[in-house]
Nucleic acid binder design. Sequence first.
DNA 1: TTGTATGCGTTATCAT
DNA 2: ATGATAACGCATACAA
Lengths: 336, 336
Amino acid sequence: MTIYDISKMAGVSIATVSRVLNGNANVRPETKKKVLEVIEKCGYTPNAFARGLGLNSMNTIGILCADSSDLYLAKAVYYIEGYLRNGGYHSILCCTGYDLENKKSCLNLLLNQKVDSVIMVGSNFVEANDRDNDYIREAAAQIPIMLLNADFEYPNVFCTLCDDFRSMQDAALNLIDSGIQDILYLYNSRSYSGRNKLAGYQSAFLLRDLTPSKEYQQYYSGRNDDVEGICRFISELAASGLTFHAVLASEDILAMAALKFARLSNLRIPEDLSVIGYNNSILACCCEPELTTIDNRLEDICQQLVKTLIATLNGNHMPQKTIFSGRLIKRGTTSF
Amino acid sequence: MTIYDISKMAGVSIATVSRVLNGNANVRPETKKKVLEVIEKCGYTPNAFARGLGLNSMNTIGILCADSSDLYLAKAVYYIEGYLRNGGYHSILCCTGYDLENKKSCLNLLLNQKVDSVIMVGSNFVEANDRDNDYIREAAAQIPIMLLNADFEYPNVFCTLCDDFRSMQDAALNLIDSGIQDILYLYNSRSYSGRNKLAGYQSAFLLRDLTPSKEYQQYYSGRNDDVEGICRFISELAASGLTFHAVLASEDILAMAALKFARLSNLRIPEDLSVIGYNNSILACCCEPELTTIDNRLEDICQQLVKTLIATLNGNHMPQKTIFSGRLIKRGTTSF
DNA sequence: TTGTATGCGTTATCAT
DNA sequence: ATGATAACGCATACAA
């Protein structure tokens, strides 16, 4: 069933059928009605490939993310797909892992598929070594590139992100001002976002005329779903003589492991140990007591990102950077 | 840059270029080399839309799932996308929610986009009222339909699933044989898989000449990420006079809420209350003690599903139903 | 082994 | 308002 079949059955030319299909105003109402009837009767839908070839677009967006089963990224992908579909776009998902070569190859896969844009979900797509970011620049030369939670200035690259620096600073200040200065900072990523969070933690000390100590800034390099391993990591830090009365974590799962450590060490929460997580994920509500954590407004970010993208594709001029501020969700693992 | 440009620069016809691109053997090695050199030099890639139009395929698979941010579904989507990409296919993701009309409309979106196949992830796509499943049958008339964790017999529909009935039966038997007969069964889905799990629980009692009691089979209808709400639900059951020494749950999150209930009620785990979850998700390792749970071999299922799909698309005859058996992962919330 | 010519199903331009 | 026709870029049957 093609547009020719419809045109014959309706007694018009394919041009008219095409006009009806695309909502062109220059069609006599009666003609339009007739054509629509035939289309309805036959259950005809235009061939997407032919349409794509003619328009040079199939209204498809590529979503690049390291791991769509990660709690945080999964939520992001879910929101983005929903907003895109709502805007009339399809989503091609591509999970890259954290290796640069794979990221490049996935990006090329999407470019070759001729997507209208690529959304890179997560700050891990911007490399520390700036020359390694040329793959983003080259892509941006072809189509708009959207970054979620990354900061990268370049033409045709649009960033939507949360102010992780300030959020983490705020959390640390809350702890310090409640009288706790030996705050163990746990993190598991050195991406742009990861570095920002760390800097936020450090800046809180400086703001209060204190010196952030290196021993209190601990990087966990293991798998990020190995609660047991993280717990052991913390226990070893404590065993090595480090004393701390709060744990501030760059992700909820690290904070959750800290709670486990506390239980194993017979520490009371929050009397003996305060704990703050990050992301306000489902994990935060699974703890006992529930986790004080930072909500970085992921849904708002995703909505804004898609809004910016669609407007850009429609030829509108859009801001290249949009920053949201996070908020501290106070629950049971802190006493302030 | 089109195939014509390449053909001119290489001094051959477009047919030859096409042959080289598609690995046709009938090309003289020198000619092939020359063409490849030009292609390499220009960084030429064939236009995907034109290719799609000619071949009536863009090697794209639609993935339908209710909610890709759900822990379990997210993992499934992640595995599937990876295996598909490995097999040379792209993945269009479409999150439908749990409403039938939305499922239909998403499916149509994919069919109109002319995907080569649709994978429905999760047993919720098969409706209890069989006439409501016509949307699956109609789709199967066009392309192969793959169901993950659902059972649906129809031409061109392929099912890959875990034997939830037996897994749950096994878990219940373990509890019964360790001396616990008042087992509260908690579930939050009445899908095919959900019904199977419940039946497995019931069958365990019958196997031991016991009668499964309705009051011990409790359906939780709230949001499935509201740990607090689930916990309250359990507390109310206990307050209403129901006594139970074990909780068997159809999902880890329900089991996790049971642990929370135990802690609030000062019940020791597993001495006063045994708890078993389902899915072996990350939540199981976040608990204290860690959760005994059922692993339903999701990765194996996904691998098999994609294998079956690709073989089918290649014209091979494949089995329409593949069943894996789950396994009980014994951890700290049970004493057997 | 290689080239020519046609079809794939649209959209869009240009007449009428 | 409508129709004829030329792109769009590739694959492939058929000829050479």
